[in-house]
Design a binder for these strands. Structure first.
Length: 651
RNA sequence: UGCGGGGUGGAAAAGCGGUAAUUCGCUGGGCUCAUAACCCAGAGAUCGCAGGUUCGAUUCCUGCCCCCGCUACCA
């Protein structure tokens, strides 16, 4: 019956570290969409996964002394657990280390090579041999490696290139003719103006400098680089170029690739070009959402933010977190996460409005009708208004959902929640209850409340998959008959003599003050735990890394006095200092501008590493380094417990 | 420094050429079914600054200031 298909994807995440609330945001959004489409009768394919290759992961794994695969297995297990916890209903989970994916990527690469869309050439760049890394002109500093500071060589590396430039005009045309292809529209202009129209360069799609990747099947010195490997997950997961490509033929092209705004470029330029080269249809839409910024104002910094989704879900419930993520931020724009915002949202929208509505309705039906409404209802004033509003809500919600406006969709549902709360005040059931003659009218009022709640409960399903069934249970709503999506469009689906069950608060109110304190404590604890972990790791290393007194003697530490200080032009962290050190004046560039103003420094005595090799910073020579203690927030210069003549040796 | 986003009542956030929505908070009132909740009313904004276009600008143009993210510089 469901011939309509809907294919939605999230990006595949890079498992170099634990995921945070920002990743959850994308995935929860995709999940809400997938659930919504399923409810509408679509045959949905919802894909998420992990992008597991690359130098960075290889490096981290080496540092930890495990194989890259062992390392990612561990992280990926955690990611799957998180999606499980957040009730993510993905139909498939792809890992770029899956055998099928690797094989198909090799086939794709070979195919593009055979038809001339990938060609072998040389990649020229500045190469740092010890780091085994290439750097671009912009990245290098003073001809040295930005990582280790050692000299670079202009090196050529054999590399495979994808003919991106060939597809430039076709891409521009496609984007111009399909205004929905890139959403929101502002991103479309960004792509056209910043990348496509100025001209595309061919893309380097293989590497020889590391081997944690999919080997190029016909040239095993090379590994397939991220573009071809990662982007193609959207089709390899469906069995593209395999014996069993039923799903590919069924679901491709994708309806939406949901991505963060930082990777819009890859999805709207490189990916479509690859598909054009493969002769496959392009996805219908790429939607670039904004960031969920973790530390908004200074408020949250001082109050501390717990951003571990697991802790948040444990404390407030999965649905509350899902609600917050999708409600707080207008999809497409950036938003800010703070514990306070989260708790306020839970209190006002979930506890006060929705939770309380269900609770008071349930309580009244129990109190006035012993839990079950009679068949006979007397229609009255205000009923029509509520009915109309309830019947409009689903249409509006659908409109917003179809354009991925989750926040607006929820706002629309909550308008109905508010209207229903207001209906109680208008009809004043407690007055009706005092007059036995008005029993029928009272029954109709209760029914209107229950029916409105039923419609609300069905509408919130995609967002809050756990809450909906709880409401059904409390309100005696029968799942199969009274909760299909289409049932929201008909008033009166709920049977007249509905019988409710005992209920307790779905969303208890949270004490903001207390809770913020509690979160703060957890936050501090986490920081402590991290700090504890690091020193133990370092300790082991340090035992073999003792230095001798001779090593120390190599340092020439001197007392110096700051005679002059000024900002370095074009740098916001650097100060240029002139130091009196014995008979000489030294010029030192120091990254302390965020913590000290030039005036503060005049006349101060500091400790200088006097025999440090001079370097140029931002074009200014620095002949040494001054010592300071610093953590993430603060920085204090190291001084003397009194005054000493400048030039005095420190040991 | 480059790129991008933004500055609208206490907070968040719409509007984008013609009485400045909405939510939270605040004040006052109502009600008592309910989770100190719900309902009603009210106060509170010269829409970052300075010019310009226009009969008229928060909305268009120019310049400037500030904030945020990425980026470079923290020897």
């Amino acid at each position: 019956m469901s011939s309509k298909t809907f294919y939605i994807t999230t990006p595949i995440y890079y498992p170099s570290d634990k995921l945070h609330i920002g990743h959850s945001y994308t995935t929860v959004a995709a999940d809400a969409m997938a659930r919504y489409k399923r409810l509408q009768g679509y045959d949905v394919m919802f894909l998420t996964g992990t992008d597991e290759h690359g130098q960075k992961i290889q490096r981290i794994a080496e540092e930890k002394g495990v194989t890259p695969k062992e390392y990612v297995d561990h992280i990926v297990a955690g990611i799957r657990e998180l999606w499980n916890l957040l009730d993510i209903s993905n139909d498939r989970f792809i890992r770029t280390t899956d055998k099928q994916h690797e094989e198909v990527v090799q086939k794709i690469f070979k195919k593009l090579y055979d038809q001339g869309d990938i060609y072998k050439s040389e990649y020229e760049g500045w190469y740092c041999t010890p780091c085994e890394s290439f750097w671009t002109e912009v990245q290098i500093k003073e001809g040295a490696c930005p990582d280790c500071g050692r000299p670079l060589e202009l090196t050529k590396e054999e590399s495979y290139f994808f003919k991106l430039s060939k597809y430039q005009d076709k891409l521009i045309k496609h984007i111009e003719e399909n205004p929905d292809f890139i959403q929101p529209a502002s991103r479309q202009n960004e792509m056209l103006n910043n990348f496509l129209r100025p001209g595309l360069e061919d893309l380097c799609v293989s590497r020889t400098t590391f081997d944690w990747g999919i080997p190029v099947s016909f040239d095993d010195k090379h590994v397939v680089y991220v573009w071809v490997d990662a982007l193609s997950n959207y089709i390899t997961a469906l069995g593209y170029l395999t014996d069993n490509d039923v799903d590919y033929r069924k679901y491709w092209p994708a309806d939406v690739h949901l991505v963060g705004k930082e990777i819009v470029r890859f999805h709207t330029i490189i990916w479509p070009a690859m598909l054009m080269a493969l002769g496959e249809p392009l996805p219908k839409q790429i939607y670039g959402h904004g960031w969920l910024l973790l530390e908004g104002g200074k408020m949250s910094k001082s109050k501390g933010n717990v951003v571990d989704p697991v802790i948040l879900a444990d404390n407030y419930g999965v649905d509350a977190i899902r609600y917050f993520l999708l409600r707080e931020v207008p999809f497409g724009a950036d938003g800010v996460f703070s514990n306070e915002a989260l708790i306020n949202r839970i209190n006002s929208d979930l506890a006060n409005d929705l939770g309380n509505l269900v609770n008071r309705t349930n309580a009244m039906i129990q109190k006035y009708f012993k839990g079950q409404l009679p068949e006979k209802h007397q229609e009255g004033e205000y009923d029509k208004q509520l009915e109309e509003m309830a019947l409009q809500a689903p249409k509006k919600v659908e409109g917003y959902m179809d354009s991925l406006q989750f926040s607006s969709a929820l706002t629309e549902i909550w308008k109905l929640v508010s209207r229903t709360n207001k209906y109680i005040d208008e009809t004043m059931p407690w007055v009706l209850a005092k007059d036995e003659a008005k029993k029928d009218r009272l029954a109709a009022v209760m029914y209107h409340l229950a029916e409105s709640i039923r419609i609300i409960s069905v509408l919130i399903q995609p967002f809050m998959p756990n809450t909906a069934p709880i409401i059904w249970d409390q309100m005696g709503i029968i799942k199969e008959v009274e909760t299909p999506w289409a049932s929201t469009k008909i008033w009166g689906k709920l049977r007249k003599d509905v019988k409710v069950n005992d209920a307790k608060a779905i969303f208890p109110r949270i004490d903001v003050e207390k809770e913020l304190e509690a979160l703060e404590k957890i936050h501090k604890k986490q920081i402590k735990m991290q700090q504890c972990k690091q020193p133990t790791a370092q300790k082991e290393e340090k035992q073999s890394e003792y230095i001798t007194i001779d090593d120390f003697a190599k340092l020439d530490l001197r007392v110096a006095k700051i005679m002059h200080a000024e900002p370095v032009k074009g740098a916001d962290k650097l100060l240029r200092l002139e130091l009196q050190m014995g008979g000489e004046i030294r010029q030192v560039v120091s990254g302390i501008a965020k913590h000290y103003s030039p005036e503060d420094l005049l006349g101060k005595q500091v400790i200088v590493v006097a025999n440090l090799k001079p370097v140029k910073l931002r074009g200014v020579e620095s002949q040494g380094m001054i010592l300071a203690a610093s953590d993430e927030e603060n920085l204090l210069l190291v001084g003397l417990d009194g005054e000493m003549p400048t030039g005095t040796k420190v040991s």
